[in-house]
Structure formats: C-alpha cells, structure tokens
Nucleic acid binder design. Sequence first.
DNA 1: AGCCTAGAGAAATTTTATTTTCAGTGTCAA
DNA 2: TTGACACTGAAAATAAAATTTCTCTAGGCT
Lengths: 281, 281
Amino acid sequence: MSVRNLIEKNSQSMTPSERKLTAVLLSDYPFAGLASIQELAERAEVSPPSISRFVTKIGLSGYAEMQRSLIAEMKDGDRSPVEIHATGKQIEGGYLSGFLSRAVGQMQSAGAAITEGQFNRICALFADPKRNIYALGGRISDTIAQHLSFHLRQARAGVFHIPRDPERWPEYLLRMKPGDVLFLVDFRRYQPNLRRLAKQAADRKAQVVLMTDKWMSPANKYATEVLAVPIEISTIWDSYAAALAVTEAMATHVAEEDWEATRQRIEAWDAVRQTEQESSS
Amino acid sequence: MSVRNLIEKNSQSMTPSERKLTAVLLSDYPFAGLASIQELAERAEVSPPSISRFVTKIGLSGYAEMQRSLIAEMKDGDRSPVEIHATGKQIEGGYLSGFLSRAVGQMQSAGAAITEGQFNRICALFADPKRNIYALGGRISDTIAQHLSFHLRQARAGVFHIPRDPERWPEYLLRMKPGDVLFLVDFRRYQPNLRRLAKQAADRKAQVVLMTDKWMSPANKYATEVLAVPIEISTIWDSYAAALAVTEAMATHVAEEDWEATRQRIEAWDAVRQTEQESSS
DNA sequence: AGCCTAGAGAAATTTTATTTTCAGTGTCAA
DNA sequence: TTGACACTGAAAATAAAATTTCTCTAGGCT
C-alpha cells in the first residue's frame, strides 16, 4: 500500500500538527517526504518528534521506511500516476474527486469550444495599449472579471474594474472612447442591467467582449466577441473553474507576450507597496 | 549540472572500483543513488569509503549532497514527463489548449493532495449553522474567498466577507466568537498582514481554515486546517483554477447537504431583488 | 628483487539524523 | 473551577550513517 493511501486511511484521526504535515506531504508528493526529517519539520512547522510519531501511527516502522517506500513507489509507481491521468478512473473517490473530474471535463470542452483564432483576437484586444479595458461581471461572476482586471493591470496601464454599484456606471461609460474594450461576464440568471450596460458601451463604439454560457446572455446582441464557456457541472450550482482558467489563459498570454513591460510594472508596484508598508509600520 | 553529467565528465580518470560504482549508479539511475551508502556499497561490491571518495571526486560535497541533487533532478525532471503525459497533444493545439491541459493536471493533483476526510471536516465546519464564517484572501486570491462567501451565503446565514481594507478588520475580529471560522486564502507572495489576521483570529479561538500552496503561507502556524492546492502551471503567473474548483466543491457540497434551507434562502432573496428592481425601474 | 605508489577496505571517529522520554500547555467534561 | 487527557516540542539518548585515518595489498618501476 502506498504511503499516500496510508495517509488517507488514517486521515480521520489526525491531530492538528499531523494535518499540517499531511498537507505538506501530499502537496509536494512524494518529494517532500524525501528530505530529512528536520527539513520536513521546518517546512511543515512541526517538530521532528511529531513527524516520527506520525510515521509510526500510519503503520510504518520509521521515517527511513517511509522514504524507502516513497522511492519504491516512484521507481515502479510511474505507472499508476500515468494510469490515473490517462484513464481518469479516480471517480471512485468521494465528493471532491467527483467534482474535480467533472471540472476537468468542463475544461476540456472549453478548449474545444474556443478556437485559437478567437482566443488570439481577444488577447490582441487586451494587449493593445491604445485601448482602455473595462471589466465587470454579474453578481457572482464578477469574481472572474476581477481576476482578469487584477492580472491585466500588472501587464499594462488603462485597466479599470467597473464597480458593482450601477449608480457609478455612468462615470465609466462616459470615459469610454471608441475602440475601448468592455469585458463582461454574464452567466445564467442573467442580469438585465448588464445587458443595458453592454448596449450603452456599444453605443459609445466600445468593443464588447462577452463571456457567457451556452444559453447566451442577452448582452450578446451587443458583443463583438462572445466566449461561450461551459459552466454546467450537474450539481445544484454551476462551476466557474473553466471560465477562470480561460480568463487566466488570456491574461497570462498578454503578459507573456510583453514580458519586459510586465516585469517593469510589477517591480514598480512592489516598490510602491514596500514604501507603504514601511511608512505604516 | 546533473549528477549523471558529473559522472560522465570524470569517466576518464576512474579507478576500477569507481567504474563498478558508476555502472551500478547509471544502470538504475537515479534510484540506486538514493539508497544508503552501505546498501549501495553492497550492491556495487565496493566499500563505503570508496563511494565517499568518489562522490567528492566528481565535485560534490558529500553523499548527502548527491542525494539532494538526485531528488532535485527528479523533481523537475518529473514535470516535463507529466506535462507531456497529461497534455499529450499540446504540440498540436495553441496557447489556450496548452494552458487548459495544464490546468487539468493541476486539478488532478489537487484531488490527490486533499483527502476526503479533510474535505468533509472543512465542509462540516462551513455547514454548521452555529458558527459564523468569515472569509478573506490576498490581493489577488481574494476573488477565491469572495466566491466562497457568495455561494455559502446562499446556503446559510452568518457568512461575512472581510473587506480588503485592514482598517476595518478590527470590527470583524471583535465579532468573532470562539468556534467561528475564518477562511483565509493566501498564495505566494504572501501578505504579512494576513498572517497577523490569522493570529488574531486564533487568539479569539476561531478556527482558521487556510487555503495555500505548497510553499505554505506563514499563516499556517495558526491554522486548524490547511488546504494545500497546486497553483504552479509553468507560466509567468500561477493559476487559481484548481483552487476555485476546490472552493466551489466545498460550497456546493454544503448547499446540497441542506438543499431545503438553501432553496428557501434563494427564493427569499429573489423575492427581495425582484421588489427592488420593480421599485427602481 | 626490492621499493614505491596508488588504490582499497577495516576500523575508528565524527557527524548527523532519528527516536524516546519527559514536562508543559491547552482543552474538554464533569 | 478542577481534574484528566491528549498533544506538542525541548532535550536527551540512541542509533545510524558518512567520512577520515590508517593499514594492507598489488602492481609497476628501477
């Protein structure tokens, strides 16, 4: 039985420091367990004795045996990870793994649904320094829009996140120049006011990039690009994991294309933040 | 430079027993070198001192350093194989599909790194109506925390998102009762003030559930549960897609467990929103 | 042949890692 | 509030492992 199984089998009866330990062990499996007991202790912020106790608790004779097992697993265990990857037959597991494998399915269809051409066109819009970028999402999906603004803001200037409060939308609308980009995220239980916003932006000749689901937000009438990402996951709620991944892919692509500029911006930001912290402390 | 290279570079000036050694070392690379010096000595039919001498001869400080190097090599040597496995036809597709398949790999390791036991314990905390839930994340990762609060708020009362502004933290801290839960998301480029927040919450006997990466936010000292999710994706930025999926899985699980209460809350909310819209239009 | 040197292992030393013991601390239940 | 219990880390003890020193041997050279 693998060390990982051993840990899982005993995961019910774990003390707080043992939990920290498992988190470290599993999050960098199996390498974390190959360091010396001290190094591991330091990393997990527990004492070496706790590790020693833990190891015997899960049924191994000592730390050395755990390391031997880990090495043995790697040696022929190359097989099982690959099998799991290939076949994805970990559905057996509990709620979390079921959820995650559905999320994986979602990502795969997202990849199929969005063409590289469209992806590149949108990235080009986001990367264009002459255009300002405005982002906003729905009640829940605004987190996606925020994520994009955060990342994009590290790569370039002129990125604005429109506040959720509709009272303040006019001031942003009035600032939009023709050619500017409005990135709108609207998933089902569509919000009528987002449709209105899209219309007004389109009236001002802004380009509207809409991220929505296959049922299509009504804002799509005014959109120049529509990114349809899957969100259905056969639970009571939808999952935005694929939407987030697509968003990140865009932001990352933009940043990587002009890494030098991004680096400079990040450094400048860090400098400012540094100063702030010093003055406040 | 890899151990293998080091060996090859010096292969001219090798004594007989050193040759035996290299043969064993390279024939089961890198595993042979991970055993203890005695075991290796036995396998190669040389004495431990010969190994020790050999190791320093090729330019390493000692046997331990060789092992560390070997492990390090596997660690990022393992990355490319896994990527190739997981992504398979990455060469075919463009940027987006490459990114997405890496995100898929991430989710799979998230599933492996979080045990069902831990998942259930955390869900139980979130589902407990007697505990209030407070959520907050870092500069960028706050979107994850927000996502959780939004969802959780549909399923139950007593969910608060702590504002980003540290000035306002005290008012929330003072409201925390023993047993309440602080959900903290802190990924690398950790923020010192989050660590402080965690400490203060722990001082007030709140349970701190920390979502972090394998490098471990310093807040982990005060955490009762540490969720280590993978974020590395070999691009200039990290991806939080797996973190989001895990978060959603928790929120969805909580809601599904008590679907009746959730339904009622959502209907009540909808009614309120409806009224608002009518009165404002 | 005899000496010298390089190489190898045995033994000893030193270092390092691991485990055990023990005491302090905090938590829960009565 | 008090007592019992469980958890944890500090320190000590133990054990193991790695490296150095020393000695022996074999092969080559004068």
